[in-house]
Design a binder for these strands. Structure first.
Lengths: 340, 340
DNA sequence: CTGAAAGCGCTTACAG
DNA sequence: CTGAAAGCGCTTACAG
């Protein structure tokens, strides 16, 4: 289209130097009100927008951050809608600060060269493990980061986590309160000290508190996916222990589980009670609606952005680690244990 | 951290000029194999990554595209997981071409200055209407665009749409085949010539083909959301016509509807059959699982990226308009009309 | 209060 | 095959 207008064009038309135009734009230096308004007028007329590339070439910051999420398989992002919620939160928080968000899936071969290449101001990293290659590479980048759901041990790191232990505890406690004793858990992949491990710890604490022994055969380490939950149904119904309740560590696996149980003739909640985790938006529309542990995913994303920007701007907030609270939402998928 | 290494550092160490380094990096000009390998070695050693800002300052293209999606309310993205699927497709397609993706929610006040500011190479725009302010502004930008689900009349525009009319036809035909005659539709917001209008046209065609009169009282223009579907349940059960089947133009509203019907004592499919639209991943895990019109959302995103990049690179493909096919997936939510 | 000039890290004709 | 130089659009000391 129309040959891109630059600061030079503005300067020429406004009859000032480019330095002055720059000063007007950035509110730096001292400019007379008169000159400023003259320049601003021209800027408006020509719809001038400063070049981000030129700026970041000098400045050394790009007002660009990336949300880094792991791929499931090569090249394709996780299909858990959880990520969408998170990204919505990040977009929302970033927008408020005039920063733009690049979305980025990574696998173990990612070399993160784009971080340098694009002069990214910072990274929001979701779910990396301490011993992963990605983690090491990210740290070596020396760029501001906020880690989500990662439970990293280094206290210097900025992290946003959920109170997973409390979630595990609350869900289990709820079931115990309903008279259930043989409570199975669908943990998803358990990494030492990771999200699911913490939820599991909460489960154990609740059990212990009520003097219920924890049985290893009640732990099902199946995939955190609908398929994973679906497949678990078989194993649960075939279990020696007559399981009366299941706590799935993700709504998505709870959904698969319920469907799986249904297909082998078991009804929720009549035959088995089920508790999920996350409170993904559609849990309330399921039949039966799902009792679950609620977390505010959008606010998690917003919190992460804010921490990242504080870090970038040197407004070092004292809080390096934020824990988002959870709560229990009781719906229809859990009822008192009838065999009591 | 370590003072950013530039092309100059490489040149100095490799004992060549910066022009040569540039040529090696880009495979341009003529460079002896010897020199090239020497330069490459230094690049590798210093882990040099060229600056995207500096490049785009010269080049005039940034290898950055944006996915533009409308906000529901101010500042927050739609919560329909449909968008996540789409974004996954775009990320995947873009990755393959070494382009990065900015995610951007817009409302009617968006001025799109970031497009100029960031020198974006192109835009993938989801669901804008011909008479919207956003549409006019986007066109005036003069930047390559691909419009998704927008049904714009200008034949010059690059567009990816779904075969919505066929979808509307297939779903309705399926219900008619099962003996249903009083078939209600939950349309979502109908814009003249838009997505839902096309689906509605398909519905009308199927009806007409079977000699079934179309009754205006069977058209429910409720929100394409779980809430919208939920609220429609009341009106549907209270309708004069004894409705035996409902075709919801989104899975998300079908889900809300089924739940709403359930809450007032109506069972799907026994009392009412329901067909959805989209085949969002969890439809197969619902109880009953949902009969729906399937579209491949991920491939829609991929197609859009490819068209956009062809356009950017001047590899003008002859196809300006691509229509993604739909198919019917029969599951448990539809059964023969018993009152026949 | 305002302007001339250097420089950010590249690419691209143009010489040689 | 290789290099010196200009220039992309800004910002930032530094003069005046």
């Amino acid at each position: 289209m129309n040959h891109k207008v630059s600061i030079k064009d503005i300067a020429k038309i406004a009859n000032v130097s480019i330095a002055t135009v720059s000063n007007v734009i950035n509110g730096t230096g001292r400019v007379s009100a008169e000159t400023a308004s003259k320049v601003n007028k021209v800027i408006r007329e020509l719809q001038f927008v400063p070049s981000a590339s030129a700026r970041s070439l000098k400045d050394k910051n790009s007002h660009l951050i990336a949300v880094v999420v792991p791929f499931v398989e090569k090249g394709i992002l996780q299909d858990n809608p959880f990520y969408w919620e998170l990204v919505r939160g990040v977009e929302n928080g970033a927008r408020f600060h005039e920063v733009q968000v690049i979305l980025l899936g990574i696998d173990e071969h990612e070399d993160f060269s784009f971080v340098k290449g694009r002069h990214l101001d910072g990274l929001i990293v979701v779910g990396v493990y301490e011993d992963s290659a990605a983690y090491a590479k990210i740290l070596s980048l020396g760029v501001p980061c906020v880690f989500l759901d990662s439970y990293l041990s280094d206290p210097k790191l900025y992290q946003v986590d959920l109170d997973d232990e409390a979630g595990g505890y609350l869900g289990t406690k709820h079931l115990i309160g309903l008279g259930h004793r043989a409570i199975a858990v669908l943990t998803g992949k358990v990494e030492q000290g990771g999200v699911n491990d913490h939820r599991h710890q909460g489960y154990l604490r609740a059990l212990q508190e009520s003097g219920i022994p924890s049985l290893p055969e009640l732990i099902f380490e199946v995939d955190s996916s609908a398929q994973g939950g679906y497949q678990a149904a078989q194993r649960i119904s075939g279990c020696r222990q007559k399981i009366s309740a299941v706590f799935a560590f993700s709504d998505i696996s709870a959904m698969g589980l319920i469907r799986g149980l249904y297909d082998i003739g078991l009804r929720v909640p009549d035959d088995i009670s089920v508790v999920g985790f996350d409170d993904i938006f559609y849990t309330q529309h399921m039949i039966p609606s799902l009792t679950t542990i609620r977390q505010d995913i959008v606010s998690k994303g917003q919190t992460a952005v804010n921490m990242l920007l504080d870090q970038i701007n040197g407004t070092e907030s004292p809080r390096r680690k934020v824990t988002i609270p959870v709560s229990l939402v009781v719906r229809q998928s859990t009822i008192p244990n009838k065999k009591i």
